[in-house]
Computed example of a mutant assay.
Amino acid sequence: MRTILVTLMILIFIPNTENVIGTYQIVDELNEDTLELNSNGTFTYKERGDSCWAWFDFSGNWQQEKNSITLNHTNIYTESSTDFQNEFYEKPTDSIKIQLVSADKKPLENIEIKYKPRNYKIESKYGKTNSNGIVTFKKFDIEYDDDDVTHISFNYLLKGKEASVSSSSYRNVDKVLVTINEFPKEITEHLEHKFEVENEVLILKQSEWLPENKKYKKL
């Protein structure tokens, strides 16, 4: 009799993974994310927000402990090769200074910069960086509003090969610092997403990536 009771108690506390296997969809008006928990211990998460440009899929392994489910996955990405820092001023001048430096803060000399207005009828301006990595342009004498910007573009070396980049600059920006990382590193990060299980609903309690406290209903 004691053996039967012990066995029943063990069965009660062992999570039944069969009950959680399946596909879930986030309860959110702005996106239609889905999470598929497979019987072999793997999962697939599909991010489906309101902009298709931000859609992303990732997968990994999942495990259950009592009423908690943890997703584990590895994200690998490459560091950005360029970083633009704009300095805004309440009373901007009529010129803009653009400085290019390497990842170790050394000035990059003799790089040609293209300074271009949104209005294609106005001719672009060109200039090369000096020994301090700086080139200065006089701002375009045109009407600016909240959406009207100018464009900065140039070519640079990325792992020994020529690459190009462009960015936008507003009227009240007087200085732009551009950092060029010619040899960006590959970054590997291990991420966890923890859910609570309530009947056939998953509640995201902890995540370094996804919005927390969202509910996912089983389809």
Rank of each mutant, 00 (worst) to 15 (best):
Q64T: 00
L219Q: 15
E208T: 11
E200H: 13
D145F: 12
T93C: 05
D57Y: 08
K97D: 14
N119Y: 11
S207Y: 09
E162I: 04
T3D: 15
K114V: 10
K114I: 15
S167L: 00
T188D: 06
F140S: 06
T136C: 11
C52N: 09
K91P: 04
L191I: 10
Q63G: 09
N172M: 03
E143D: 14
V176T: 00
L11H: 10
N40A: 04
L35S: 02
L177E: 01
S167W: 00
K66N: 12
L177R: 00
F195Q: 01
L191N: 07
S153L: 01
E29D: 11
V135Y: 06
T42M: 06
F183C: 00
E196A: 08
T74L: 13
E186S: 05
E65H: 08
D174N: 13
N213Y: 12
V135N: 11
S39L: 04
E196M: 08
F88Q: 08
L177P: 00
K161I: 00
Y216D: 08
K185H: 03
V101K: 08
D174W: 05
T23K: 04
G60S: 08
A54D: 09
Q206E: 14
N31G: 08
K159Q: 09
P117F: 12
F195A: 06
P211I: 09
